[in-house]
C-alpha cells in the first residue's frame, strides 16, 4: 500500500497535476526568455507588464533614464530583472500556487490519497519553506504593482500624434489587453489570503467596523475564486507581454478601435 504513485483510486488522478506542471513550466520558460530580451517591450503608449515599472531602461517609459553606468559588465541587463522578482515572489509564496506546485513539481503529495516518493517530510514548519511566511511582504509590493499596471493601462489610452506630439484619447486592442491585465492582476492580488486577513480577517468582530467588513467581504468574494484569478492573471500577463512584444517587433499591428 505504499510506494510512489500507489493508490486505490481508479480515476486518472495524474491529469490535474500534470496540467498544472505544464502550465506553470510554460509560463516560467516564457517569462524567463521574455525578461532576458531587454528589448521590444514597449510600443507607443504600451509597456509590457514584465517591464513595468521601468526603473532604468531605454524606452520612453523609463523613470531614471537608460541602464546605469554602475551596472556590472559581467551581468546581462534587462529592465525586467530589476522588478520581476517582486511579482514572482508574490506568486511563489502565494497560498494557491504553493499547494499547486508542491503537488505537481514535488509530488508532495502527487495527488490526494496517492503515495509519495519520499519518506521524510518537513512541510513549511522549518527552513527553507518556513520562509513562505514572508508572503504578506510580497503582497504589499504586489498591491503597489497593481497600481503601476493600472496606471500603464491609463497611459495606454493616450496616443501621441506622430507629427505634433499632442496626446489624444483613444483605445486600441493593446489598451484593452493592458486594462484586462491590470484587472486580472487586481482580482488576483485583492483576493489574496494574506490581503483578506490583513484587511479584516484578523478581527473576530467585524460587525463593529462596517467599512472593514465590506472590504473583507469583497476580498472573501474574490478569494473564493482565487485559483481562477491566479491562472487567468498568469496567462493574462504573459499574453500582454506577448502582445506588446509582437507589435513592437512589427509582427502584429495594433488595431486602433477609436
Amino acid at each position: 500500500m505504499s510506494g510512489f504513485g500507489n493508490t486505490s483510486r481508479n480515476d486518472i488522478w495524474w491529469v490535474r497535476p500534470l496540467l498544472v506542471f505544464l502550465g506553470l513550466s510554460s509560463f516560467i520558460v516564457y517569462a524567463t526568455w521574455a525578461a532576458l530580451q531587454g528589448e521590444h517591450y514597449a510600443i507607443g503608449p504600451y509597456l509590457s507588464p514584465f517591464y513595468s515599472p521601468e526603473i532604468f531602461g531605454s524606452s520612453p517609459h523609463s523613470w531614471f533614464g537608460p541602464k546605469p553606468s554602475w551596472w556590472p559588465m559581467v551581468l546581462p541587463f534587462s529592465p525586467a530583472m530589476l522588478i520581476l522578482w517582486a511579482p514572482g515572489g508574490m506568486r511563489f509564496t502565494c497560498y494557491y500556487y504553493r499547494g499547486a506546485y508542491y503537488k505537481s513539481f514535488w509530488a508532495d503529495p502527487p495527488a490526494c490519497a496517492v503515495s509519495e516518493p519520499r519518506k521524510t517530510y518537513l512541510g513549511e514548519n522549518s527552513f527553507p519553506l518556513i520562509m513562505q511566511n514572508i508572503h504578506r511582504y510580497f503582497l504589499y509590493l504586489a498591491v503597489i504593482f497593481v497600481f503601476f499596471l493600472a496606471h500603464d493601462a491609463w497611459k495606454a489610452m493616450w496616443f501621441a500624434d506622430p507629427l505634433t506630439g499632442e496626446q489624444t484619447f483613444g483605445v486600441g486592442v493593446g489598451t484593452l489587453v493592458l486594462t484586462l491585465n491590470a484587472t486580472l492582476l487586481g482580482g488576483y492580488t485583492f483576493g489574496c489570503h494574506s490581503f483578506r486577513h490583513l484587511i479584516g480577517g484578523f478581527k473576530d468582530r467585524l460587525s463593529k467596523s462596517p467599512v472593514q467588513r465590506k472590504l473583507y467581504n469583497c476580498a472573501s468574494c474574490l478569494n473564493r475564486r482565487h485559483m481562477n484569478w491566479a491562472w487567468f492573471s498568469l496567462f493574462g500577463v504573459m499574453f500582454a507581454d506577448l502582445y506588446v512584444r509582437l507589435c513592437s517587433m512589427g509582427i502584429w499591428t495594433d488595431w486602433r478601435i477609436f
Binding site: Y95, R98, G99, Y102, K103, D108, P109, C112, A113, Y121, G123, E124, N125, S126, L129, I130, N133, R136, H193, S194, R196, H197, L198, G201, F202, N223, R224, H226
Partner: peptide, 29 residues
C-alpha cells in the same frame, strides 16, 4: 507549519467546509 495547503482535506469534506481557505490559511496568517 506542517500543512502545505494542498487542499485535499477541503475536497473530501462531506460538509463542504472550506477547510484550507477559511480555517487553516487564516490561522497561518
Amino acid at each position: 507549519g506542517f500543512c502545505n495547503i494542498t487542499k485535499c482535506c477541503t475536497t473530501v469534506c462531506p460538509e463542504n467546509i472550506h477547510i484550507t481557505d477559511n480555517a487553516i490559511i487564516p490561522l497561518k496568517e
